[in-house]
Write a protein that binds this DNA or RNA. Sequence first.
DNA 1: ATCAACCTGCAGATAAATCTGCACAATGCG
DNA 2: CGCATTGTGCAGATTTATCTGCAGGTTGAT
Lengths: 132, 132
Amino acid sequence: MSQFTSGELRVMQLLWEHGELKPGELQELHPVPIKNPALRSYLKILVDKGHVSRRRVGKAFFYKANTPRQRAFSTMLGDLVRIFCAGSVDELVMALVRKEKLSEDDLLELKRLADLGSEAGSRKRGAREKKS
Amino acid sequence: MSQFTSGELRVMQLLWEHGELKPGELQELHPVPIKNPALRSYLKILVDKGHVSRRRVGKAFFYKANTPRQRAFSTMLGDLVRIFCAGSVDELVMALVRKEKLSEDDLLELKRLADLGSEAGSRKRGAREKKS
DNA sequence: ATCAACCTGCAGATAAATCTGCACAATGCG
DNA sequence: CGCATTGTGCAGATTTATCTGCAGGTTGAT
C-alpha cells in the first residue's frame, strides 16, 4: 500500500528535496501551479497515509517527509521489477540500454557500481537464491 | 498517458503472457478472483486507451495486447528513473544493490550487459547529453 | 484596534478507477 | 426446438484521486 499517486509524488519530491516546508513554500516550489486548498488536500492524504508528518510552529504547520526518498524509490522500483522481470535484473538493464537512457559514461559508471556491489555482495553472501 | 493502473496491469500481464485470450480464459487465469463484468470493464478501458485490440471470432471476442510488454515496461521504468534519478542510472543501480535484489551472479551479468551496452552505445553515440 | 496576509478545519464537487446488475444474443447439446 | 452456457451492450454503484469554497483563527504592521 505504499504506492504514491503522481499528485502525491509531486509533493513528496519537494519535501525530500527541501526538508521541512510550510504550505506557502510548498505552493511556490510546486512544479505546476496549485492552489492552497488543493495542496492541503494532498498533504492531508499523505499525513493520513503516514508518509508525511507535521509540526506546529507558530500559527502554521511545517510538513516533513516521513518516508525516506530512497525507500519510496526502492519500493516502487521493486514493484516494477517484480511485475516485469520476475525479480531478475537482466530485462531491467536491457530496457535501459534499449531506451538509450544509458550513455557510454553511464555504462562505465554502471560497471564501477557493479564492482562495488560485487564486493559488498561478497561480504554478505546468501541473501538471495542463486540460479545456477 | 501510457500509464497503467494496477488493475489494468493485471489484465495486460495475462495478455502478454498468453497472447490472445477470450473473456472466459482471462477470467480463469486472472490472479485474483474476478467476475465477468468487472473484467470486461477493464478490457473496455484498455481497448479505449488503445492498449488492447479485440477480434470477433464466433459469438465472442478475442482480446490481444496492442502495446508490447517491453514498451510498457520501458515507459514505466523511464518515468520512475526520471522522477527519482533525474534520468541518470547511478541511484537506480544503488537502489537495486541496497535492496539485495542483485545477487553476485546478477552483478556479473550486469557487468556483462554493461559491456554489451557499451559496444552498442559506441556504435550510435550522442543520444544523450554527457555530464562532464 | 484594525486590516491584510497567511494559516486552519471542514465540507463538498468532479473525474477517474473499480466493480456490479440486467436484459438479451449466439452456440452447442439434448 | 428448448435450454444451459457463455458471450454481449448498456447503465450505473462505489471508491479513490484530484481539486474547490467557505468561515474563521493567528500574526504583524499600521
